[in-house]
Design a binder for these strands. Structure first.
Lengths: 230, 230
DNA sequence: TGCTTTTGGTAACCGTGGCTACCGTTTTTA
DNA sequence: TAAAAACGGTAGCCACGGTTACCAAAAGCA
């Protein structure tokens, strides 16, 4: 039944430590719903009734939040095997805390939240593992948000840009790399305006700290960048 | 042994649904460490080795984060029965993601993280409950951070102030209430400078939207405030 | 009780960064 | 392959809010 998605699901953090045979049993237990979406189609809408823990099976989704002023903040970009709605799954109000939009054609699986904590009728042994995995996942999510808060708490734009670039530098281990976000998306992520971001990056280029062309970026003075990060 | 703290602990979300006799057994299992601190003393320091899940027994602690630029951001204020370090408890790196400072004289309990998920030798039945509680707690924490991100994502100071006041208004249900934070702390929380905050609040008072004197504040035009929140 | 510390309001100055507008380039779609 | 849409850099304008400095009131402490 879920044979098609086994490879992806085995990579999903929720099912870590559960072997294929058990996974099949657990999935039958959880009774998930698989749906496909086109580009820019809404998978979930902020404030609507919570429909279940999401797992991306194919394609990519973007988790966004619109504040009333009309600014769209990108919370995350999730690919195959990644999840969304982990936090809402165990909240009381039972509504989506964010909007999830298909970044391109994609397929997602929605798991009813109650089934995860609720004790299984057939008392399948992987349920405890599932809950423990869930705990780790939500903790990681919380830490990610913690990091996000740190980003937003940086007052100056230079600080934000420098911090972001240094994180990429550390992640890739190279001083020349591709930006994982378009200017628009980066501006959203750093919570600044797009033209101001361009201007500041250009200034940094003029000063010889970095060099870039479109998506390709090169860090020329790591130490200077570090001093600007805070 | 923990008789002195039973009243507080029974109110702690971690032990919800566990009756006093079981609580004693569970506590013995967890082997917690109780310590006292003076005002402004550090309970935990950012980056240092994780020492365990914290529970405030008496007094208050402030969870803060200093960014390298020297700005101190208040993450939370925790009183008796409240916890800190929930996220770090299940992260890999095993260091404190924030600094916790005693707001006044206080007593806290530290629970070794491993003991919570690790299966109990005496296989005491409340362990599953403990893990489930932990899941709910961490989810709530994540949602709280989510809300925090929303606050920080608000561009204008007016928007921040309005949002904060409306939240208090909703919480107390009254249009006149006491500010739960000093100006200093509020400025930190909203991530703005203290004089700018005072100035903006004075402007709002001049415009007749609000009225205030020190800690006491009155909302005069809720609808206008709402339109300013975003 | 007087002294010190903390807290909060106000004012002047000015830099960062938001906004709008425009244009060239790249990518997508028909 | 032409038309349309998305993307990214640049420029000018100016307001929001950071910074510093100072003072008054309140609270803590001797």
């Amino acid at each position: 039944m879920f044979k098609k998605w086994m490879t992806v699901l085995s990579k999903c953090a929720l099912f870590r430590g559960i072997n294929p045979e058990e996974l099949n049993i657990v999935l039958a237990c959880l009774n998930p719903k698989v749906s496909s979406y086109d580009k820019n189609e809404s998978v979930t809408v902020f404030g609507e009734k919570f429909s279940g823990l999401g797992v991306v099976l194919a394609g990519e989704v973007v988790v966004v939040k619109d504040n009333a002023a009309g600014n769209r903040v990108i919370m995350a970009v999730n690919g195959p095997g990644e999840m969304f709605g982990e936090m809402a799954a165990f909240s009381e109000d039972g509504v989506w805390p964010a909007t999830v939009v298909a970044r391109g054609a994609c397929t997602v699986m929605l798991l009813p939240a109650g089934k995860i904590v609720g004790s299984c009728e057939r008392s399948c042994g992987s349920h405890k593992m599932l809950i423990t995995n869930m705990l780790i996942i939500v903790s990681d999510k919380a830490l990610m948000l913690h990091r996000k808060v740190e980003y937003l708490a940086i007052r100056s734009m230079r600080g934000k840009i420098s911090t972001f670039l240094l994180e990429q530098y550390k992640r890739t281990g190279k001083d020349t790399f591709m930006m994982p976000l378009k200017r628009n998306e980066l501006a959203d992520f750093l919570n600044v305006s797009r033209p101001s971001l361009s201007r500041e990056m250009s200034r940094m280029r003029d000063e010889g700290v970095i060099d870039f062309h479109r998506d390709s970026i090169k860090i020329k003075q790591v130490d200077v960048l570090r001093s600007m990060a805070g």
